[in-house]
């Protein structure tokens, strides 16, 4: 189609004499400048927490250095756990393994339980969000069940599965599924009517509607739920492992306490914190990637 033909007269004149094209030469800073700028940006993010950590360490050292202190100062923690820090891969059989193995055992349980929770949670959330009757039937039950503390499920799970491993996975599952269900349901309920109308006019079938409209539209909500879920499951696994024993960072902490290796507990806590942070960031990053950094507007 030729748009010019229907343009008004003045517009035609304009169209025939296009504005002169001015080549833009973006001012590109010299590479050294660029690097110092990047370094500066990193520095403002990294230096303040480093200063705070250093101050805390000094404070901790001062408080715990005196004789008769119940907790070890950082210098002693480092001395006691040097082997564990520098050789996380040893395996002396049984539960006498390096921290890597404990952490990976815990992470595997979380990966298992959490994946199940993610799939089941999104499916149930979709059902509850989409169907008024499913919501009326299921929502009150969810609201009650989600208040049960994770560990309260453990005895029941042990009774049902008669084994620690599936019980721990079940605890992860049952802990992380509620926020996923609830957020997914809210996301589905908030799909704008316009999108539903578009889907209706195009005649998407239910399956296409689910994949092409529902999931992308609810994705920001779903990922909020997934992020809360991963945090909760990492909280729950530590406690559950303390009770079920075997290999796992939770049991490692409990074992260290029983052997009065306070320094090892502190090291383990450090790792638990870092991994929890990384898991949270990973899910957030995945969400950012999937939703293209745009929420449905």
């Amino acid at each position: 189609m030729n748009m010019q033909a229907i343009k008004t007269e003045p517009a035609k004149v304009l169209a025939n004499s296009p504005a002169p094209v001015v080549a833009l030469t973006p001012k590109r800073p010299p590479s050294l400048d660029k690097y110092t700028k990047a370094a500066k940006e990193v520095a403002v993010r990294v230096i303040p927490p480093l200063i705070v950590v250093t101050l805390l360490m000094v404070f901790w050292e001062l408080v715990c250095r005196r004789a008769g202190s119940t907790l070890p100062p950082p210098s002693k923690v480092y001395k006691d756990t040097k082997e564990l820090i520098f050789d996380p891969f040893f395996d002396h059989g049984g539960i006498d393994k390096g921290l890597f193995w404990h952490l990976s055992a815990s992470l595997q349980r979380v990966a298992f339980g959490y994946s199940l929770a993610a799939v089941a949670g999104v499916a149930l959330g979709t059902l509850v969000g989409q169907s008024v009757w499913a919501m009326r039937g299921l929502d009150p039950i969810f609201q009650v069940l989600r208040t049960i503390p994770p560990l309260a499920w453990l005895p029941l799970a042990l009774a049902a599965f008669r084994d620690g491993q599936p019980s721990a996975i079940f605890v992860i599952f049952i802990t992380s599924i509620w926020p996923i269900i609830i957020n997914t349901a809210v996301g589905i309920r908030n799909i704008p009517q316009d999108y539903r109308n578009v889907a209706a006019v195009v005649q998407l079938n239910p399956l296409e509607f689910f994949w092409k409209v529902m999931i992308p539209s609810a994705a920001p909500y779903i990922f909020t739920g997934l992020r809360i879920g991963i945090g909760l499951s990492w909280l729950a696994i530590i406690a559950a492992e303390m009770l079920i024993g075997g290999v796992g960072i939770g049991f490692f902490i409990w074992d260290a306490w029983n052997s009065s290796h306070i320094s090892e507990i502190i090291l383990a806590l450090f790792y638990v914190g870092i991994i929890g942070f990384v898991l949270d960031r990973a899910i957030a990053g995945l969400g950012h990637l999937v939703t293209h950094g745009t929420s449905a507007n």
């Binding site: 704008p192 316009d194 999108y195 109308n197 578009v198 209706a200 006019v201 195009v202 005649q203 092409k212 409209v213 992308p216 539209s217 994705a219 939703t291 293209h292 745009t294 449905a296 507007n297």
Partner: peptide, 20 residues
């Protein structure tokens, strides 16, 4: 009496899917 592509609608607020 049901929606279909033979009666396509241009919506007031464009209703484009923002993730596409």
């Amino acid at each position: 009496n049901s929606p279909g592509p033979d009666r396509a609608v241009v919506f007031q607020n464009h209703s484009l899917l923002p993730w596409l």
